[in-house]
Computed example of a mutant assay.
Amino acid sequence: MIKVYSPANLVEAQCLKDLLMSRHIFCHLSGVDLIGAMGELPAIGLLGLYVDDDDAGLAKELIEDYLNAEPVPGEE
């Protein structure tokens, strides 16, 4: 497995994991158990999204599209 993204927080991590899983890309989210120790650990870089090597290209593309998405006009 290869790390394709470091989410900023648990909400972003779960959204991206769900996105990848909806496209049949198995995804492992690491660092979830470390969130409770944030007072003693650095608050940045604890989370990581990992996918199979063969799925890394598509996973990175989907994540990039998600991060660059624009709101739909009229749904504010």
Rank of each mutant, 00 (worst) to 15 (best):
A43V: 02
L47N: 05
A69L: 13
Y50M: 14
V51M: 03
Y50R: 10
A43N: 10
M21I: 15
S22I: 01
E40K: 09
C15W: 01
Y66F: 15
M38T: 07
V72M: 06
A8N: 14
E64Y: 14
G45L: 03
E40I: 01
D65A: 08
I63M: 08
H28M: 02
H28D: 12
G74N: 15
E64K: 08
G36S: 14
E75V: 15
D52I: 00
D18C: 01
L62F: 03
N68V: 05
V72R: 10
R23W: 08
V51R: 01
D65S: 08
M38N: 06
L46W: 01
A43F: 03
A69E: 15
A13V: 00
E12I: 00
D18Y: 01
L16E: 15
L41E: 13
H24A: 13
H24D: 15
D55N: 14
K17D: 09
A43M: 06
I63A: 10
G48M: 01
I63G: 11
V11H: 04
L20F: 01
Q14A: 07
I63Q: 11
L19C: 14
K17G: 01
V11A: 12
L62I: 03
S6N: 10
C27A: 15
S22C: 06
D33N: 07
D54R: 06
Q14F: 13
D33I: 02
L10Y: 02
V32A: 07
L29R: 05
D65Y: 03
V72Q: 11
E76R: 07
Y66H: 11
V11I: 13
I2W: 11
M21Y: 02
C15T: 05
Y5T: 00
D65G: 02
E75T: 15
C15S: 11
F26V: 00
D18N: 04
M38R: 06
D65T: 10
P42T: 03
Y5V: 03
H28P: 00
P7W: 11
L58T: 15
N9I: 04
E12A: 07
N68W: 08
A56L: 05
L58C: 14
I35H: 03
E61A: 07
N68C: 12
N9E: 09
D53N: 09
G74R: 11
H24T: 07
P42I: 02
E12Y: 02
I35S: 05
D33E: 05
D18E: 10
L41M: 10
D65M: 06
V4S: 14
H28L: 00
M38P: 00
A37P: 00
D55A: 15
P71H: 10
H24R: 13
S30Q: 05
P73G: 08
V4D: 12
L67Q: 15
D55G: 05
S6I: 02
G45H: 03
I63V: 03
H24L: 14
E61F: 01
G36Y: 04
Y5P: 09
H28R: 03
C15E: 15
A37E: 13
L47V: 08
G31H: 07
L16K: 08
K17Y: 04
G36W: 03
R23N: 05
Y66N: 06
L49H: 06
K3N: 15
G48H: 08
V32Q: 10
S30F: 10
P7L: 13
E64W: 07
Q14W: 04
L49F: 01
L29I: 15
E75H: 14
L49Q: 02
D53C: 05
E12L: 04
E61K: 04
L10E: 13
A69Q: 14
C27K: 01
L49R: 00
